[in-house]
Design a protein around this nucleic acid. Sequence first.
DNA 1: TCCCATGGTGTATAATTATTCATATAATGT
DNA 2: ACATTATATGAATAATTATACACCATGGGA
Lengths: 156, 156
Amino acid sequence: MGNRTERLLAIKSIIATRKVSSQEELLSLLDKKGMNYTQATLSRDLKFLKVNKISDPEKGYIYELPDQHLISNEIAETYAAQGFISIQFANKLGVIKTLPGYANSIASLIDKANPFEILGTIAGDDTILLIPQEDVTEKDIINSLILTIPELKNKI
Amino acid sequence: MGNRTERLLAIKSIIATRKVSSQEELLSLLDKKGMNYTQATLSRDLKFLKVNKISDPEKGYIYELPDQHLISNEIAETYAAQGFISIQFANKLGVIKTLPGYANSIASLIDKANPFEILGTIAGDDTILLIPQEDVTEKDIINSLILTIPELKNKI
DNA sequence: TCCCATGGTGTATAATTATTCATATAATGT
DNA sequence: ACATTATATGAATAATTATACACCATGGGA
């Protein structure tokens, strides 16, 4: 079903932007977006997305996307953002142009973040080919990139 | 009850050294150490220690001590370990001697890790005073320091 | 000393999350 | 195209975790 991907992306985006502390809560947030599922499905989704539940002073425990703790990547991210030139799409594939030599390090950041909606990357010297998951939109890919490398926000 | 501290330390040490995926499991590990409590107590303890539950490829989800994600501190830790000279105890207080100028940064690392068994620190230029929680042993303090700054292992 | 407030714990139970089972639908091989 | 296998999902339920309540011990004040 094509809706699973949409739902997973919605979950990622919700969890990335607000503090959610239970599956019921997430359920009703999805409901507001017109997505009606059951708690059982969310339980499976969260496991699939490897979402963690971490201590939060305000809400006790909240869900957190994995790899967000890679704060040590900040330097790498800034560097990567500098080398980023543009992204275009053709034939369901994404093509990122970078400054010469930057492609590999940017691609490796994306791989490391491993967003499920990007199946993989192939990098040359100044070009990265992004192979998206089926039925993922360009917008989804771009959002995903920004989640991975926030500094790209201004450059896309 | 004085046993609470002992139990909390045991929990920290268990979680730091092995993958635990449920409170029942933790319960029986404590039981093997002769500590008999109930699941309700562990639930409260884990909340108190701000233990997170994170995705694990092997066991699904496991408990994880907070602040372990501060990998970005590695540099700071190496630096701190270099400046560390010795630790001694007197009157239930710990006294760390450091190279001149190192005391504050080491103390700040300890404060940031905020182990509950160390109430606080006071740092001068080459000396840190450690104020331990009641009924915490010297051994506990040292283990705690090593958890915070692993590089100290060889120097203590 | 006597209260009262606080903190820690167990028991019982509520709330939350994971799983089993059944089913439908889509994908794959022949 | 058909059979077979894999994937996705909900309903019901099991498993896990959190909490309400009661109780006890301790440590200040008055």
